[in-house]
């Protein structure tokens, strides 16, 4: 008799099919352009461009994938790694939804809640970008106005202020060491800035896990 798949097994199956199909579609874009316009890539430019860009982003991509999957859940991971903007949108959205539903991330309810939040967020993002593209001419002077620019420049602090107060206050014992370390590093090392914060996320996560493990073993949590 054929064994029925669990929901989680189905999520992995659907996710694999969707993500590999999306990968093929994404690659098809430049290839189709090359064929339609009979414009083949500049091999030297391609090689040098890849050499300057890919190694860092591949390394960061691998580390980010290992770091974010346990936080996003399965469905949320398959979706988020296609739609992007994980740390500044999808993950905070999922965290807020888990908090709102009062369910644990590692439960099946948590899996459902985080997938719903990330899916809705992806749909809304896609539609707003589409609207922005359609209305790009009238929107450009408004969105680039000196009045609004500072607000959008400060989106990350505004996001993590709210999110931080919830999670840090609830887990303050866990938070003391990583917050202190990150403050010291970001203030003292000039190379750490907006461009490198993505690299520091896995560093901070690993450090927090080590400190938490030590505290847990010593019954401090």
């Amino acid at each position: 008799m054929k064994k029925e798949r669990t929901y989680m097994e189905q999520v992995h199956r659907w996710g694999t099919v969707w993500n590999l199909s999306m990968m093929a579609l994404l690659l098809a874009f430049p290839i189709a352009l090359a064929l339609i316009f009979r414009a083949f890539p500049d091999i030297n430019g391609l090689w040098r461009g890849l050499l300057a860009t890919a190694p860092m982003y591949w390394a960061v991509g691998v580390i980010e994938t290992f770091t974010y999957i346990p936080m996003l859940g399965a469905g949320g991971s398959y979706l988020s790694f296609v739609t992007g903007n994980i740390s500044n949108l999808k993950l905070p959205c999922a965290l807020n939804a888990l908090e709102q539903a009062k369910v644990k991330a590692n439960s099946e309810e948590g899996e459902v809640v985080s997938t719903i939040a990330i899916a809705v967020s992806s749909i809304v993002t896609t539609l707003i970008i589409l609207l922005g593209v359609i209305l790009i001419a009238p929107l450009t002077p408004i969105l680039e106005s000196p009045v609004l620019t500072p607000a959008f420049d400060q989106m990350i602090p505004a996001l993590f202020g709210g999110l931080g107060v919830v999670f840090v206050s609830r887990n303050w014992k866990i938070a003391v060491a990583p917050v202190a370390l990150m403050l010291i590093l970001f203030i003292a090392v000039p190379a750490l800035n907006a461009g490198t914060v993505g690299i520091m996320v896995p560093v901070s996560v690993v450090f927090t896990l080590i400190v938490s493990r030590i505290m847990y073993k010593k019954n401090l949590l």
Partner: peptide
């Protein structure tokens, strides 16, 4: 699980 979330948030708090 909580440590992973806190680790991520701490990096952004530092960045600010």
């Amino acid at each position: 699980q909580s440590a992973m979330f806190i680790g991520m948030i701490s990096a952004f708090v530092g960045f600010v």
